[in-house]
Amino acid sequence: MLLIWYPKCTTCQRAKKWLDEKGFSYQLRDIKEENPLQEELKEWYSKSGIPLKRFFNTSGLLYKGMGLKEKLPTMDDEEKIALLSEYGMLVKRPILIEKDCILIGFKEAEWSAALNK
């Protein structure tokens, strides 16, 4: 498992604590130090079944500062993925990548259902 997080994010901290308490082993990757690559984002997007808009941290300062609420609807998927890979802080976090499972944001019930198959 790979947990992509931002250490200062309280939601990311809760997700990490939850994984630790449940005894899951995982690798950590700080999104600010290592942006997701375009290839990774494409793979996660295709595996997740989640709309690409959900990959954006819509409550973040960068998202608001770039006026993306207005711009995203006019962009194609390639442009959106390029933007996410260029600015890691635009990516909603945490992201948990586990074999065929991609979880974005931390909702305990959702993670529990997905990981306790």
Rank of each mutant, 00 (worst) to 15 (best):
M1K: 06
M1P: 11
L3I: 03
L3Q: 05
I4D: 01
I4S: 07
C9L: 08
C9Q: 06
T10H: 05
T11I: 09
C12M: 05
A15V: 09
K16F: 02
K17G: 01
L19V: 01
L19S: 08
D20R: 10
K22V: 01
F24Q: 05
Y26Q: 11
Y26N: 10
L28T: 15
L28K: 15
I31H: 09
E33R: 15
P36S: 04
P36A: 07
Q38F: 00
L41I: 12
K42H: 08
K42C: 03
E43N: 11
Y45K: 12
Y45T: 04
K47H: 09
K47R: 15
S48N: 05
S48T: 05
G49Y: 11
G49H: 10
I50Y: 13
I50A: 10
L52R: 10
L52W: 07
K53I: 11
K53Y: 10
K53P: 01
F55V: 06
F55R: 02
F55K: 02
L61I: 12
L61R: 14
L62D: 07
L62N: 05
Y63F: 15
Y63R: 03
K64D: 06
K64C: 06
K64Y: 06
M66H: 02
G67F: 04
G67E: 10
L68S: 01
K69C: 00
L72E: 06
P73N: 04
T74S: 15
M75N: 02
M75V: 04
M75P: 04
D76L: 01
D76P: 01
D77L: 01
E78I: 12
K80G: 09
K80E: 08
A82D: 15
A82I: 11
L83H: 02
L84H: 03
S85T: 03
E86H: 13
Y87W: 13
G88M: 08
G88I: 07
G88V: 07
G88R: 06
V91F: 13
K92P: 05
R93G: 12
R93S: 12
R93Q: 12
P94D: 11
P94Q: 11
I95W: 09
L96H: 00
L96T: 01
I97H: 13
E98H: 14
K99E: 15
D100M: 04
D100A: 06
C101E: 14
I104N: 13
I104K: 13
G105F: 09
F106D: 05
K107M: 02
E108C: 04
E110H: 10
W111L: 03
A113Y: 01
A113W: 00
A113C: 00
A114W: 01
L115T: 00
N116K: 09
K117E: 04
